[in-house]
Design a protein around this nucleic acid. Structure first.
Length: 806
DNA sequence: GAGTTTGAAACT
DNA sequence: CAGTTTCAAACTC
């Protein structure tokens, strides 16, 4: 490691101090310290330099403030960091120790690892201001202890060091009072309690200490903690990086990056800056968020324990991690091609998940290789098995993840294994938690589909895809974009290019992280959603009771956020982003002749409302068809209680298992999407159109219901309507006479892209009054569904106004 | 492997 | 904002 002489001296002094302190020698922490190997790898050199500059991780300002610029949350994690988690984490522990032992008052105050723990465990409200201040003051109080007693050679302070880092013995006693119970759930509960205690003013270190002890108790626990260790350590790295970010970002970095950007844009940049540290710095944002999420949202989970444990820097954890990492590398070669996942759009991508999954596998004696931690593609975040609004809230955060080559070649069967083994409850929790940091894993079925697909390919295709997959992740081949545009898959996926990329004049490398960040910001400024997952899950942005509806949805509940625009591929080739993402086309698509074999993803109510209101007259025929459906025999029990709506939805192809395929195959974005409208118009009863007031239809009887693209938004049993309709009386609105003045347009609304972001609150502000009952109903119903993107809101708002004017 | 096709991204 | 160009992946031969 490239350490300064002073650092080395201090480290040496500290080592001697540790070894000379009998009390410390007996502690696990001191044992760990004594067993630490010298830090001398190049991978940690720069990082260590950075750390030496700022010493310890700072309680990130970003993290403590709710006013995080989401766009600045762009997180860059160098790929190598993931795979090196095992060894690097270990090294980092050394680094941190050294840093703790090399106290710089201000720096330690800012960057104490325990402070990080505190920060992560802090209540969000408190974090904003109070906690942050408290933490800093706490650090202020603790650091002098370090300065005055802990780090001078020969002094007895190592115990204090341990106490500060891991908690005082008293706290430990409290926390370990129930150590006889080794089950993780209980431990997690204890962790939760510890977190609560922390919020009550107790040291967070005791939590770490507790974790440390807990981990020692069980290999399983250790494994889980190791898994979390990866996340946590990476998060910690990010956090540390965040120190620099906070310090540097405001001024020098922007200047520097601007200059570099200009140079890059002129093709003048020839070398990577030695001092650029933007990437992990940004990742810290995610780390902070992830930790927040972990602590606040999942503290009751065993996984929270693991995540919490990551901050403890438990020696045993690190040791275990080390062995796991070595195991991983040993197993890499055994990865069969078909086991390798590489399509980042189709495989789980969480580097953390991957690595930790491997750890789980190792721990379970399966010596499973680490799954390709592409981790980069955030498109699957929202497809997590356990989705939550928390994840979604952070979906805007895009992460730059740097994965080493080693990390990219792992069997994906490991994924399935881990998906199964980790599922209850830890997996889901980890997925939830890690989704904030990384991408979630592909389900076993997805993987099976992938393998099956691979097997079905022609030999040539198979070789190609095989090679593609064996490489472990996306490899770009950019020649002119410098890998700084969304053309570049790596860049678009939020990852650095790797050596195996065939790109030319690539700047999507850690050396140019500032440039990358800057370009990225530019792109995000142009399109805030540019780096957000392209595939979203309707479970998130659609009906709250989506889970109940899943059986009715397309095989994949996900859909492409913006939709495709295919003209010739019929959505049957990978040209189509929906197809490539293995999701059905949705109403957001503007494709022509769609034959997406993945079906048609139901359209969230928002989208339908938006689209319908944007073009209320375009689908008069559809309305007629829908009316015909309602008027059809057997479903005439349509009632204001939405039962009829559910029946309508049942009539839609997607709601019908048998009809789904036929519909999807027959559906094309324009033709098929209106196919249901081809019901005899003669059945249209003018008096009945009142039930299909366009305002209401946005929520209830949208044309898409007849199109089969969104029946699932409405629970077939009508239960979903309760979510959709906050007010029970609103169904009466459906009976109102609709506005007859509708102009039929030939084009599909799907052929229009959504408009720029606009908050729904604004929408509601803009059309709060003067609405017909139907319109009011729509507005009231909308809030039940969190908007997926500002786009939709914008569209809604615009359309609302437009329609109100009508 | 070269050339073509395709559609997203970027540009005007 | 629509049309055009650029770009790189996907695909074909």
């Amino acid at each position: 490691m490239d350490r300064t002489p002073e650092a080395k001296r201090i480290a040496a002094a500290t080592s001697s101090s540790i070894s000379s302190s009998p009390a410390v020698q007996e502690s696990p922490f001191s044992n760990f310290l004594s067993n630490l190997s010298p830090l001398n790898t190049a991978t940690t050199a720069s990082y260590t330099q950075t750390l030496l500059g700022t010493n310890l991780p700072t309680p990130p300002v970003v993290f403590t403030s709710p006013h995080i610029n989401l766009q600045r949350e762009t997180s860059f994690l160098e790929r190598d960091d993931i795979v090196e988690a095992g060894s690097e984490v270990y090294k980092e522990c050394n680094t941190n120790i050294v840093q703790v032992q090399n106290p710089s008052f201000a720096e330690v105050q800012l960057c104490s690892p325990s402070g990080c723990v505190d920060e992560y465990l802090a209540d969000p409200v408190e974090v904003d201001s109070t906690c942050s201040a408290d933490l800093r003051s706490q650090r202020t109080n603790e650091v002098p202890r370090l300065l005055h007693s802990g780090f001078a050679p020969g002094k007895e302070s190592n115990t204090e060091v341990c106490d500060i880092m891991f908690g005082s013995p008293e706290n430990e006693a409290v926390l370990l009072s129930d150590q006889a119970e080794k089950d993780l759930p209980l431990s997690s509960l204890e962790m939760s309690q510890a977190a609560i205690n922390q919020r009550d003013g107790k040291k967070t270190e005791e939590l770490s200490r507790f974790i440390f002890e807990k981990v020692k108790e069980s290999d399983v626990n250790a494994c889980l903690v190791s898994r979390a260790q990866n996340c946590g350590e990476n998060a910690a790295k990010l956090q540390r990086a965040g120190c620099q970010y906070d310090e540097k970002n405001a001024s020098s970095q922007s200047r520097h990056s601007n200059e570099r950007k200009k140079r890059v844009q002129k093709g003048l940049v020839k070398e990577g800056g030695q001092n650029e540290r933007g990437i992990r710095r940004h990742l810290q944002f995610e780390a902070a968020k992830a930790y927040k999420f972990t602590i606040l949202g999942n503290s009751e989970s065993p996984c929270s324990l693991t995540h919490d444990a990551t901050n403890s820097r438990s020696p045993s954890i690190l040791t275990n991690l080390k062995s796991l990492a070595s195991s991983h590398f040993d197993n890499r070669a055994s990865s069969s091609p078909q086991d390798v996942s590489c399509d980042t759009s189709q495989f789980p991508s969480s580097p953390y998940e991957s690595f930790t999954s491997a750890q789980i596998g190792v721990n379970s004696t399966t010596s499973a290789p680490i799954h390709s931690g592409i981790g980069l593609h955030l498109n699957r975040i929202s497809r997590s098995t356990s989705l939550s609004s928390d994840i979604f809230s952070s979906k805007k955060s895009t992460r730059y993840l740097r994965m080493p080559e080693q990390m990219l070649e792992h069997g994906s069967n490991n994924i399935a294994t881990n998906s199964n083994t980790m599922k209850p409850p830890c997996h889901s929790m980890l997925v939830d938690q890690e989704a904030a940091l990384c991408e979630v894993g592909m389900s076993a079925s997805q993987e099976a589909d992938e393998v099956e697909e691979l097997n079905q390919l022609s030999p040539k295709r198979k070789r190609r895809k095989d090679a593609y997959m064996s490489e472990g992740c996306k490899r770009c081949n950019c020649r002119r974009s410098k890998c700084l545009k969304l053309y570049c898959e790596c860049f678009a996926a939020g990852v650095y290019c790797v050596d195996s990329c065939a790109c030319v004049n690539c700047y999507n490398k850690p050396e140019f992280e500032d440039t990358v960040l800057d370009i990225r910001q530019q792109i995000e400024a142009r399109n805030p959603l540019a780096f957000t997952p392209k595939v979203v899950d309707n479970a998130i942005d659609s009906s709250p009771n989506f889970m109940e509806e899943q059986d009715l949805t397309t095989p994949s509940s996900a859909r492409h956020k913006r939709g495709c625009n295919c003209k010739k591929s019929k959505c049957l080739k990978r040209y189509c982003e929906c197809f490539q993402a293995k999701v059905g086309c949705s109403s957001a698509c503007r494709c022509e002749g769609c034959k997406n074999t993945f079906g048609v993803t139901p359209e969230p109510v928002y989208d339908r409302a938006k689209r319908w209101e944007a073009h209320p007259a375009e689908k008069l025929d559809n309305v007629k068809g829908a009316i015909a459906c309602i008027k059809a025999p057997g479903i005439n029990h349509y009632s204001p209680t939405w039962e009829g709506i559910s029946d309508i939805s049942k009539l839609t192809p997607l709601s019908h298992p048998c009809s789904r395929t036929a519909f999807s195959s027959a559906s094309s974005s324009n033709s098929a999407k209106i196919s249901q409208a081809q019901l005899p118009s003669s059945q249209l009863q003018p008096s009945g159109t009142g039930h299909f007031h366009w305002g209401c239809s946005a929520v209830i009887v949208t044309p898409e219901l007849s199109e089969g693209k969104g029946p699932n938004d409405l629970n077939s049993d009508g239960a979903g309507a309760h979510y959709d309709i906050p007010y029970d009386d609103t169904p009466e609105i459906l009976k109102e006479t609709s506005n007859p003045t509708k102009v039929v347009k030939a084009s599909s609304p799907n052929q229009k892209r959504v408009s720029p972001p606009q908050s729904r609150s604004r929408l509601r502000e803009r059309s709060p009054t003067g609405l017909r009952s139907g319109r009011k109903f729509v507005l009231q119903a909308m809030p039940s569904f969190p908007p997926l993107t500002p786009h939709r809101n914008s569209k809604e708002g615009t359309n609302e106004i437009e329609n109100d004017d009508k």
